[in-house]
Nucleic acid binder design. Structure first.
Length: 581
RNA sequence: CUGCCCGUAGCUCAACCGGAUAGAGCACCGGCCUUCUAAGCCGGGGGUUAUGGGUUCGAGUCCCGUCGGGCAGGCCA
């Protein structure tokens, strides 16, 4: 028979059932039928629960229905046998020849094996990280980065046209606080006696930026403390008002020079963030500036649109969006009493902009602490007459670091947080990338630093990579040209371990589809562990470099196929596949 | 107080949008290196899926209550 790839084999069997269904229950011919992967090998390679699902509407005994389906199932060379089990499952056992043919497809497709057309080229935007450029990325951002990057890779592999985007919050108050913080440190370094507010950015990196400015421009930004502190309420009175007054004075006192300090701080921090992510294997097609929304008048335009649709109103001097009309708990302010737009206002404009760019689907990756924002953003989209269903917000739970079995401290603002860079330096990029996506994203993550660093069998990173390195080692020992293995006879592959491994390889495209559908890269990570386990088991059960050539070549072809899949999967997760360990 | 998320082996976690006997790893116990990498493999014990009800052929999964944990509830971002 002609080699069917795993994906083709699956759809081949689906079509057989569709034909059987059309004969047994013509009225339900259009029903969507899905094949399950049975957990237990005794249940075959595929299972169909169609009979169970049709039992009720047809008012027929499910086992009887299963009998009828099996009887109506067209013959196929790919099917060894079928059996009816349990309440009415139809278990399908695929022939060894069909499984070997799937391996042939793996060897032909190589790095393309597993790439599917599930997304049908639809444009999808994945926006992630989007941390304020006000300081180094910390370990919480790291999880969003690893999740978002892996997810985007998986979606791309599943046939979507993916665009990765980082939303740069370069317009808000937080940036002003950073600029102020930097300037205050600069003044202090110049010997000016100014206080440093407790709610300003405390980190060492702020001092470094100040030193950089001094080194490049000397005393150009030196001003008197009196002018800066004029009319500023005390910290004890109102810490936030204190900060805001200092910012206002800084803008006054520095005049044109304020823009330089602001821009310098932004450029420095964004650059640092970019480097950090690049080293982490995370890249973006677009870095989208919040400020550009204001400069292009898009914030005002978005609010006009809401205004004209009658979804805004004035109260207490502020402008509100009636988000309660769309299921939110309370209405939200979009423009403050002082005329300033809120963060929410630019977020509305940003999402309008996203939708206007024509994405079939928009995925926002947010920290779980932002879950309260989902309703209002979706509400705003609806209010503007857009289909909020096209937006999916993937909430990523926090990651908590553990060292020596104890929580490692992670407080914000105080400057005492563990940065992503520190984490990467400590455990390495591979361990960080894999550990971050080893859990379902909506699940809290306990990140065990000691485990991530350990070089032993407890560490899943090494477990998977070791499988890859072992294969490379075997192929090198063999010394032949792996290209030749593509066409060798595979009929020697017939042991239970070999058929089990073939079955694992066949599952890969389906794993990609599931991971894409569920937005769940962890499914891929689990699969790779499982594939590595099947390989290690095989490795210990049989010798590859045997005298008999057909057996030797067939086995080498099989492990070469495993290597392709391990590489493809690890690549999507941003983890390296070393050839030697 | 209100809303959202979560609760699965001693520990860390899976379970294919309701399917078959709830699965892995670690830890614990016992085995396997003169042969392609022992960072590996093989075997063993371990569960009332927090708890009480409900829905149906069938529930860890859906609905309600209770207990326990996390996160939100600014004219902050």
């Amino acid at each position: 028979m002609a080699p069917l790839s795993a994906q083709d084999l699956r759809s081949h069997i689906v079509s057989l059932f569709a034909q059987a269904l059309a004969q047994v229950a013509p009225g339900y011919a259009g029903a969507t039928l899905a094949l399950e992967r049975p957990k237990a090998a005794e249940h075959g390679d595929f299972a169909c629960n169609l009979a169970l699902q049709l039992a009720r509407p047809l008012r027929r005994n499910p086992r009887e229905l299963a009998q009828a389906l099996v009887a109506a199932l067209p013959a196929s060379q790919a099917i060894e046998r079928t059996e009816i089990a349990g309440a009415g499952f139809v278990n399908v056992f695929v022939t060894a020849a069909a499984k070997r043919a799937a391996l042939t497809a793996v060897l032909e497709l190589e790095s393309g094996y597993g790439r599917i057309d599930y997304g049908k080229g639809a444009r999808v935007q994945v926006e992630f990280v989007s941390a304020n450029p006000t300081g180094p990325l910390h370990v919480g951002h790291g999880r969003g980065a690893a999740y978002g990057a892996s997810l985007a890779n998986v979606l791309d592999f599943a046939g979507y046209a993916v665009e990765r985007e980082y939303y740069v919050n370069d317009a808000g108050r937080q940036m002003d606080i950073l600029a102020l913080s930097t300037w205050l440190r600069y003044l202090q370094a110049q010997g000016v006696a100014v206080p440093f507010p407790p709610n300003a950015y405390q980190g060492e990196y702020v001092r470094e930026m100040a030193a950089g400015i001094a080194a490049a421009h000397g005393t150009r930004y030196l001003r008197s403390a009196d002018a800066l502190l004029a009319g500023v309420p005390s910290v004890e009175e109102d810490a936030e008002a204190h900060l805001d007054a200092l910012i206002a004075n800084a803008k006054d006192v520095l005049g044109e020079d304020y823009a330089y300090v602001h821009q310098h701080a932004l450029t420095e921090q964004l650059g640092d963030c970019r480097n950090d992510l690049q080293e982490f294997g995370v890249h973006f097609e677009h870095w989208f500036s919040e400020r550009s929304l204001y400069e292009a008048g898009q914030v005002a335009r978005a609010l006009d649109q809401l205004e004209q649709a009658g979804h805004l109103y004035e109260q207490d001097g502020a402008r509100w969006f009636r988000s309660t009309a769309f299921g939110d708990e309370k209405d939200r302010v979009v423009q403050r009493e002082n005329g300033q737009y809120t963060y929410f206002a630019s977020d509305i404009a940003y999402h309008l902009n996203k939708f206007e760019r024509g994405f079939a689907r928009v995925i926002d990756v947010w920290g779980a602490d932002h879950h309260g924002y989902v309703a209002r953003v979706k509400g705003a989209l609806q209010a503007m007459g857009l289909d909020a269903q096209r937006l999916t917000v993937a909430l990523v739970q926090f990651a908590v670091l553990y060292r020596d079995g104890k929580k490692a401290s992670m407080s914000t603002r105080s400057g005492e947080f563990v940065t992503l860079r520190q984490l990467r330096d400590e455990v390495g990029n591979d361990a960080a990338r894999l550990f971050y996506v080893l859990r379902k994203s909506d699940q809290h993550l306990d990140f065990d630093l000691d485990l991530a660093k350990s070089q032993n069998n407890e560490n899943p990173v090494y477990y998977i990579q070791y499988a890859h390195a072992r294969i490379c080692s075997v192929l090198e020992e063999w010394g032949g040209d792996v290209g030749d293995l593509e066409t060798v006879a595979l009929s020697a592959l017939d042991s239970p371990a070999e058929l089990a491994l073939l079955r694992e390889l066949m599952e890969f495209p389906q794993v990609i589809e599931d991971a894409a559908h569920e937005l769940a890269p962890h499914a891929l990570a689990f699969y790779l562990k499982q594939l590595a386990a099947a390989f290690h088991s095989y490795y210990n059960s049989v010798r590859f470099l045997v005298e008999e050539s057909s057996q030797r070549e067939a086995r080498l072809a099989l492990v070469l196929g495993v290597r392709h899949v391990l590489r493809n999967g690890l690549r999507l997760l941003g983890v390296s596949a070393p050839e030697k360990m």
